[in-house]
Design a protein around this nucleic acid. Structure first.
Length: 131
DNA sequence: GGGCTGACCTACT
DNA sequence: CAGTAGGCCAGCC
């Protein structure tokens, strides 16, 4: 019986699972986030075709090949906050990268209406940068 | 298989 | 606004 049909074959890289496809889509989506804007994990998941896979987005980004340039710092949680321990080097690096793009933190939070998905649309439609 | 852990999210108090 | 509860699902014992 083929009980393993739907299982991911770790040792057979040419067999791609739904999750593998999701991972690659996440890379594309993240690479498409314009400078000076952010998306939430949930939005990235939805744009990558799995609306309930927000917790998988970080996994996907960590899997990016070494040479690949991913603006991973442009992904934050739904509260507009950096989802890393505040005392970690990763937190400081992400915050610095975002601030270098003109993103403003207010009480440790990014205003998603300005810098998030909707803000990016407004920017495209009206040509008014949020910064 | 079972249990536990996350760079999460939404809904509800 | 803060805190909680339940849901989510791949990966790693």
């Amino acid at each position: 019986m083929f009980t393993g049909v739907n299982k991911r074959a770790k040792n057979l890289p040419n067999i791609t699972s739904d999750f593998d496809r999701f991972v690659k889509k996440v890379w594309q989506v993240v690479q498409g986030i314009p400078r000076g804007h952010v998306l939430t994990y949930g939005e990235v998941a939805r744009l990558a075709g799995m609306s309930r896979a927000a917790r998988r987005v970080s996994q996907a980004m960590r899997r990016a090949p070494k040479g690949m340039t991913l603006p991973w710092h442009r992904v934050v949680n739904a509260q507009g906050k950096i989802s890393l321990p505040e005392d970690s080097s990763g937190f400081r690096r992400q915050k610095e990268l975002l601030e270098n793009e003109g993103i403003v933190f207010l009480n440790g939070k990014i205003d998603l209406d300005r810098f998030g998905y909707q803000g990016a649309l407004d920017h495209l439609l009206w040509g008014e940068p949020p910064w």
